[in-house]
């Protein structure tokens, strides 16, 4: 009996170590490449790529952080993400509030319609979205708006879903008191409910920001068939693979710069992110 417990404990420790190293190794390799010097990645086949660079250097970071093209792309990504957050919250918060407060017939139907947009695979909806955005009158829209409209389509159902839960947690009594004192519904919503809901809505906003920041499929389809001067960062990163001589250090540096804000945000808000990503999965 004693032996068996020990055996299971040992397997447990081994499995923990294996899974941790499987997760950390690729991330370490990305970090290692980003600080590599020239002789650590152009080996000429004489010696294998070292596990730690011979002369660690931050040259590539200096290069990209001073590169105007990188910053133009980064600003496009940030603008798209911020516009997506604004659109999703402005459209989503009032709708979620109404859905959480009123008990009218057809509430379930509306909720179903709102969530049903996610039933179409991204890769299928990318084709019609890119086609209409790059033809006819829609073509005159600025790229920022095209991209954020497409991303809002992905983010809005999440915001409505998360915000509905947030509003349900706010006691109804407050609004009733405001009504008694003569506030209209709109005034109550703006001045009493929204300030109370801000922490919860902020979690939803960050979720949507990261969703837009990471989004590749729709951004790629929209920008691939039109000539745009700037690309969102994920598409820019992809375009670096296609270069004539891909530079691993540059790819690793951009990769790290793209993922850094995501990692920071995710860990600062892990509690909310987990409830957001698994909401509705086990019910």
């Amino acid at each position: 009996m004693v032996k068996k417990i020990k055996l299971s404990k040992i397997t447990w420790i081994i499995l923990i170590i294996v899974s941790l190293s499987l997760v950390l190794l690729p991330i370490y390799v990305m970090f290692k490449y980003s600080i590599s010097d020239r002789s650590s990645w152009i080996t000429g086949g004489k010696y294998p790529v070292p596990w730690f660079p011979f002369n660690p250097t931050l040259d590539m970071y200096r290069y990209y952080l001073a590169d105007t093209r990188f910053w133009a792309n980064a600003f496009l990504s940030i603008n798209v993400a911020l516009l997506t957050v604004a659109l999703s919250i402005i459209l989503g918060a009032p709708a979620a509030y109404s859905l959480s407060r009123s008990k009218f017939n057809g509430k379930a139907i509306i909720l179903f319609f709102i969530l049903s947009i996610r039933l179409i695979p991204d890769i299928s909806s990318a084709v019609p979205i890119a086609t209409i955005f790059n033809n006819g009158l829609w073509d005159y829209l600025p790229v920022v708006l095209k991209l954020s409209l497409a991303h809002t389509l992905l983010g809005l159902p999440y915001v409505i879903y998360i915000a509905q839960g947030v509003f349900e947690s706010i006691p109804k009594d407050l609004e009733e008191q405001a009504h008694v004192m003569g506030c209209g519904k709109f005034y109550t919503f703006l001045n009493i409910v929204i300030p109370l809901a801000i922490p919860g809505l902020a979690a939803g906003a960050i979720y949507v920001f990261l969703l837009s920041w990471n989004e590749f499929t729709l951004s790629y389809f929209i920008t691939a068939t039109s000539s745009v001067p700037m690309l969102p960062l994920p598409v820019y990163l992809k375009s670096m693979f296609g270069a004539f001589t891909p530079n691993p250090v540059g790819i690793a540096t951009i990769s790290l710069l793209v993922s850094l804000p995501v990692i920071v945000f995710t860990f600062a808000l892990q509690k909310y992110m987990i409830s957001g990503s698994t909401a509705g999965s086990v019910k």
């Binding site: 923990i16 899974s19 990163l237 690793a252 995501v262 860990f267 892990q270």
Partner: peptide, 24 residues
């Protein structure tokens, strides 16, 4: 800590994951 580390892949943009695999 272990749970946070195991959640890391979720925090990395998909395109970055592919780029690491391409490098490796």
């Amino acid at each position: 800590v272990v749970r946070s580390v195991l959640l890391l892949p979720l925090a990395i943009p998909t395109i970055v994951t592919t780029s690491i695999l391409v490098l490796m």
